[in-house]
Design a protein around this nucleic acid. Structure first.
Length: 963
RNA sequence: GGGCGAUUAGCUCAGUGGUAGAGCACUUCGUUGACAUCGAAGGGGUCACAAGUUCGAACCUUGUAUCGCCCA
């Protein structure tokens, strides 16, 4: 049956996917023929996820590595699975509930809500798996894992093979707790007022927004005054005045209510007279104004603002450090929604206690300070941004804002000056939740932390020693930088969807960490206990992905065979979130590295380099691309743009180009099929004809290039080499060369060429399979009856031994001659269909042999008829710039002397430039002395060739001038 | 402010010391028996700038400029 003109991807892809699946072709160990294993853990996409271009890119690279190793006979495992994605999933399900008019999360309660989430997961969690299959991903789908598999409520639908994942997570928490690597503490954390949970530093995005800086006066206690003196650089006094206040600048006036002190730099002479004094927070009921001390600390920047900083330890990370150093109490002002607190005792009672603390009459424990609500009654319950407005208004109306003069035009258009509150409009960096997009509030809360400093050293050492290699290398620098400055990792989340923390509390607030409630009760001596309602950060469990998916803590066969895994392919953006934590946790838990290589890539962007986003409308949907162009085109594009460390710009135009490449390959195969040159047995064919020897050598070269490129994770090099080989060598030259041999040559040559052609096409298909699995598997089946599917076909191992240097040289000369004839024809406007004679003189024996050995090919491809040996060129002959002989096209009738002169002069110009450079180098004794011999030799040989060409061209030009 | 990276053809980008490359776009020609999702032939670059190292620099070093990303 004749092949269609193009590959029908939309018909073939699902059929091939089903075929692979029916054969269980991607099972761990499939096509295994050697002992070494090769394992990749998929970066688990969120269960809420839909395939985007980033997944498509990332998984294409993994699949290339996996298919390549599987064909090479490694014991190969690509472990798939999904991440439960705490916040994202909880958010998604809540949205669904709202959209379908079901009871909300709060109305349902924890138990019922979690049932809904599991139900939702069962329904939609498999979406991404199907999408990855459409891309051709050869994961062992029967092993599909889930980071919450085995957790309470898991109905075990589907086929997760890792019911232990939850047990593994709990076991690790308990062990790390017992080793003192996990602790509970009241610390300042990033609080997300939308989701009402703590989040880690990494989940915060600092974004520059337009903000204001207010300047307020904090009056000194009891109306005290001091002389405020400002000096310039030379020490000359520029300002001296009596002040009864200290000036403070802030971008967050609402937090003034929680101030515990004002800090100035110890070297700041301006405030030296009042250090140790008390000043008044200028907000709240007059009769209960709080007094706070003026202290010194290295933190304030003398040149910034007034040089004095208010210290609100419970709502700012820098202030928190200052407060801790100076023993300043931390007063929390807000509730979980980011509104001003409405709990606790009335303001006057709380303010009275705080005043005693400021005066040193009383000290508070952290929780006593936290219990104190210092929000005045009229602000209680107000949203933090509303409270800000109220505070500013109150201070300003009381005349305690710092005033500056401003020019304005009055009714008559006259310029006047007036005093206005000093408010600077300036960009400020504001923290936002990466999921909720609301302003994050630093908040003092009780949370669980991993003492990262204690587990960081083995992780640093693993990379420093080279045990783990991060590619590109710049990733290692980033890795060191972060790990060397690591902060405690807040791992508790006030969510419901996730691994519930295995800690139970008794009525007195003592807590017991254990794998099960029964064990905890036992530890508590039988007391009734209540479990910590919080769940673990999703990244805590995904940090255990490499071992959890292999059945740890059980001593499984898979753990022994596939762990440590080999390569992790993932985005740069989760280097800290996930990669570093996996290394830390695997090192802490099983004392081994999780993988030896990390391949980091950039974000996939649009063709202009912009981030894809729904609002910009530049999102490319990989599934639409697959529909339109086929998965292979998208995959080839992904591989082609995967330069190490490169920016990834995806464009439809590029994809179209590689879709065209699949058509090209298809048609080369179709040509082979038409000439019964298909279905080799895989053995390298024996060849007599130079052209066949040559293409066998070229094939061997490209196999070596592809292997070397993939070995070095240079996917772009592998893709480009294959593209250049298939299109530029096989299609452009070999298929064309083969035509006279297949159609007009003797039976033996024809048979040989059929065998070589069949082998070459098969090799193209094999070598392209990791990148383009569908079209190649289809061709494999179409072109022959095979013992094994292509995905299980052995990867070739031939190499340089197949390269025949003489054949190589001869074919390069033939190609050069053909190109030169074509070029002269085109420039001399010889009609494309016209066959022309060629004249030659001074032909070397080599050139003669090369010409005669390939006469049929040359004549066909250059559209020439006979070659005439001559002693002198006839008038009007255009000379060819080829070595080994003086060829010419006798074009007396058609030649345009002017054009030919211009052509020759241009060629001579180019030659002169090259020759000049080479002569210059060779005449420099230092070059000859210092450069490697082979470079010198190469230059000499090159120069001789160019000089020969130059001689021919000069002679031709001279003849032309005689006409 | 700190860290990392980039700057090469009109565009998008490869190129780790030895003759500046690819794809796309562009121009001209083409119904030659695989392919018009194609073929042939062309035009197009002071490798950001400056100084240095070297026989030799797009590549190494230093500085400058511009842009990007991450972290404060």
């Amino acid at each position: 049956m004749a092949m269609e003109k193009t590959f029908n991807a939309s018909e073939a892809e699902p059929r091939l996917t089903a075929m692979w699946e029916a054969q269980n072709a991607f099972a761990a160990g499939a096509n295994r023929s050697r002992d070494e294993s090769f394992t990749i853990m998929i970066p688990p996409p969120n269960v809420t996820g839909a395939l985007h271009v980033g997944h498509a890119f990332n998984n294409t690279l993994q699949d290339i590595l996996i298919r390549w190793h599987r064909m090479r006979g490694f014991d190969t495992l690509w472990q798939p699975g999904q991440d439960h994605a705490g916040i994202a999933t909880q958010m998604q399900v809540e949205k669904m509930l709202a959209a379908t008019q079901q009871p909300s999360r709060a109305e349902l309660g924890r138990q019922k809500f979690l049932e809904k989430v599991w139900e939702w997961k069962g329904q939609y969690g498999g979406t991404i798996v199907e999408q990855l299959k459409r891309l051709g991903c050869s994961c062992d789908w029967n092993r599909n894992a889930f980071t919450m598999a085995g957790a309470e409520g898991d109905p075990r639908v589907g086929h997760e093979n890792s019911p232990n994942f939850h047990d593994a997570v709990i076991k690790v928490f308990v062990e790390m707790y017992e080793q003192g690597l996990i602790y509970r503490g009241k610390r300042l954390v990033n609080w997300d007022p939308h989701f009402e949970t703590a989040i880690s530093d990494l989940e915060v995005e600092n974004i520059e927004v337009a903000g204001h800086m207010w300047h307020f006066k904090y009056p000194l206690a009891g109306g005290a005054t001091y002389t405020y003196v400002e000096k310039d650089e030379d020490g000359n006094v520029t300002l001296s005045e009596e002040r009864d206040y200290i000036s403070i600048a802030t971008t967050r006036p609402e937090t003034m209510l929680g101030d515990g002190a004002v800090a100035v730099h110890p070297d700041d002479a301006r405030y030296a007279p009042i250090v140790g004094a008390l000043c008044e927070i200028p907000v709240g009921p007059k009769e209960h104004r709080r007094l706070i001390p003026i202290i010194t600390d290295e933190y304030p920047d003398m040149s910034f603002g007034s040089g004095a900083v208010k210290i609100t330890g419970a709502h700012d990370f820098n202030d928190y450090e200052v407060a801790k150093r100076a023993g300043i109490p931390l007063y929390r002002l807000m509730d979980t929604k980011g509104a001003m607190r409405a709990d606790g005792a009335p303001y006057d009672a709380a303010a009275t206690v705080a005043l005693e603390v400021s005066k040193g009459l009383k000290t508070l424990t952290v929780s006593e300070a936290d219990a104190l609500n210092l929000v005045p009654e009229e602000l209680r319950g107000l949203d933090r941004f509303e409270a800000r407005k109220a505070v500013v208004e109150q201070i300003t109306s009381e005349g305690l804002a710092v005033m500056v003069s401003e020019e304005f035009n009055d009714e008559d258009g006259e310029t006047q000056t007036r005093l206005v509150p000093y408010v600077e409009n300036k960009p400020i960096m504001q923290p936002f939740g990466d999921r909720s997009k609301v302003v994050i509030e630093p908040m003092l809360t009780d949370q669980w932390f991993v003492d990262a400093e204690k587990v960081v050293d083995p992780a640093l050492e693993a990379v420093r020693s080279g045990e783990i290699k991060i590619m590109p290398e710049s990733g290692e620098k980033t890795y060191y930088h972060w790990l060397e400055n690591i902060e405690p990792w807040c791992i508790s989340r006030q969510l419901w969807w996730g691994h519930q923390i295995p800690v139970w509390y008794d009525a007195e607030g003592h807590y017991y960490c254990a794998a099960t409630e029964a064990e905890a009760i036992e530890k508590a001596g039988g007391k009734p206990l209540e479990r910590d309602p919080d769940v673990l950060d999703t990244w805590f469990s995904s940090g255990l992905w490499p071992i959890g998916t292999l059945g740890w803590p059980e001593d499984t066969d898979e753990m022994r065979r596939y762990f440590p895994t080999d390569v992790l392919v993932t985005g740069f953006d989760i280097l800290f979130f996930w990669v570093a934590r996996m290394i830390m946790m695997q090192k802490a838990v099983v004392k081994e590295i999780p993988f030896h290589t990390v391949y980091l890539h950039q974000l996939v962007r649009d063709e202009k380099g912009k981030k894809m986003s729904k609002t910009t409308g530049n999102v490319i949907d990989p599934l639409e691309i697959v529909d339109e162009f086929g998965a292979d085109a998208l995959r080839f594009t992904n591989a082609q743009m995967a330069a190490l460390g490169g920016v990834l710009k995806l464009s439809k135009q590029k994809i179209t180009g590689y879709r065209n490449f699949t058509t090209k390959l298809w048609n080369a195969a179709r040509f082979a099929e038409m000439h019964e040159a298909t279905g080799s047995d895989g053995a390298v064919p024996q060849a007599e004809a130079t052209v066949n020897k040559w293409i066998i050598g070229e094939t061997a070269k490209v196999r070596e290039t592809v292997d070397a490129a993939l070995e070095a994770y240079r996917f772009n090099d592998a893709a480009n080499a294959l593209y250049a080989f298939v299109w530029g060598k096989v299609c452009d030259w070999y298929v064309e060369f083969s035509k006279p041999l297949l159609m007009d040559a003797d039976a033996a040559t024809k048979a040989e060429t059929q065998a070589v052609m069949a082998w070459v096409i098969d090799q193209c298909v094999i070598l392209l399979h990791p990148i383009m699995p569908f079209i190649t598997e289809e061709l494999w089946g179409t072109l022959g009856s095979r013992e094994k599917i292509l995905a299980h076909t052995d990867w070739p191992t031939y190499g340089g031994e197949l390269v025949d240097a003489a054949a190589d040289a001869e074919m390069n000369w033939v190609i050069g001659l053909i190109e030169e004839i074509r070029s002269v024809r085109a420039q001399m406007h010889v009609p494309a269909g016209l066959k022309v004679p060629v004249v030659v003189r001074d032909m070397s024996a080599e050139a003669k042999a090369a010409f005669e050995g390939n006469e049929a090919l040359i004549k066909k491809l250059a559209r020439m008829d006979a070659l005439h040996g001559v002693t002198t060129f006839p008038k009007g002959t255009a000379a060819l710039s080829v070595t080994g002989a003086a060829f010419g096209l006798p074009l007396a009738d058609v030649i345009d002397v002017g054009e030919e002169k211009a052509r020759l002069e241009k060629t001579l110009g180019k030659l002169a430039k090259e020759i000049g450079g080479m002569r210059g180098r060779l005449s420099n004794p230092k070059f000859v002395a210092s450069a490697p011999d082979e470079v010198v030799e190469e230059t000499r040989a090159n120069l001789a060739e160019r000089e020969e060409e130059e001689g021919l061209m000069k002679a031709a030009l001279k003849r032309l001038e005689e006409i």
